[in-house]
């Protein structure tokens, strides 16, 4: 049985980690990280079949996760550490010289949990498709997950990947779009609108689900529904509505916190809203 309350408490702690990590070095991307904290926790503490303490690059016999929008590194690192991939206190090295926790995720420093570098946008879905194909070739029935941003869908490569995955029936793949409607220069609708995004994925031949990514119970149930749709000849995508900055009132409802670090006072106010549930790093 899934302990939804427990997952919610973990998500609150992850949000604390995000703010503390970014504040500590006065750099990073709090907005999307806060918005996707619930998804990261749901995946790593409930959905993924994985072995955090015996990380291997290939991940044979495990589900794999790829973060395409690598600027959500703070959220991912927090969840990787708290689920056992590397020591929790290493979060204190985020974005500092000689760290394994680079500004954007990389395999280059050997951080367990990371299988490819990401940061330059639009590539993660293609990588995930390649990994999913190798699972099929290896007769490994496990699944591959990939998170992308919504602004990231402006990259043409994403649609090359979307076309390919449906045409070649890559049905062991679940893509999740962080549909927060915001990007660096403003609302996605104003920068370059995605139009009817659901209709686009449907037209590309994907099984298309929707969920509120900031309601843990719904995140869990939708991910489980997505899993039921795998193995049926179609890739699966979840359009995940989130609020950028979720959990910190003054970071919500604006794109301004995409890539801005809080100052001391802002970090203090954020901490007041995020209870220390699992112990700070």
């Amino acid at each position: 049985m899934t302990d939804v309350k427990g997952l919610e408490r973990m998500a609150t702690q992850v949000r604390r980690d995000i703010i503390r990590m970014i504040h500590q070095v006065s750099s990073g991307h709090p907005g999307g990280s806060l918005g996707c904290a619930d998804l990261f926790v749901a995946l790593y503490f409930d959905i993924l079949r994985h072995h955090p303490e015996q990380f291997t690059m290939q991940g044979k016999g495990e589900d794999l996760f790829f973060l395409s929008n690598g600027h959500l590194s703070a959220a991912w690192y927090s969840v990787l550490a708290r689920s056992g991939y590397f020591p929790l206190n290493e979060l204190a090295t985020f974005r500092k010289l000689n760290t394994r926790l680079q500004g954007h995720p990389t395999t280059h420093e050997g951080l367990p949990g990371v299988r490819v570098a990401s940061g330059s946008l639009g590539m993660g879905l293609s990588v995930a498709i390649g990994a999913a194909l190798s699972k099929k070739m290896n007769k490994d029935p496990h699944l591959v997950y990939c998170l992308t941003g919504d602004g990231e869908l402006q990259e043409g490569q994403v649609w090359e990947a979307a076309l390919f995955a449906a045409a070649k029936k890559v049905d062991n793949l679940i893509a999740i779009v962080d549909y927060n409607g915001k990007q660096i220069d403003g609302p996605v609708d104003e920068v370059v609108s995605l139009g009817d995004l659901k209709a686009k994925w449907l037209a590309f031949g994907w099984e298309t689900l929707e969920m509120n990514g900031n309601k843990m119970e719904e995140v869990i149930s939708t991910l489980r529904e997505a899993i039921k749709h795998t193995g049926k000849g179609k890739p699966v995508v979840i359009l995940m509505k989130t609020e950028m900055g979720f959990g910190v009132d003054f970071m919500m409802g604006t794109h301004k916190w995409h890539g801005t670090a809080p100052n001391d006072e802002q970090a203090r106010r954020a901490m007041e809203q995020l209870e220390e549930t699992e112990g700070d790093y």
Partner: peptide, 10 residues
């Protein structure tokens, strides 16, 4: 990018 994913799979 897919080739990189295939390499991850061995």
């Amino acid at each position: 990018s897919m080739a990189a994913g295939l390499a991850i799979g061995g």
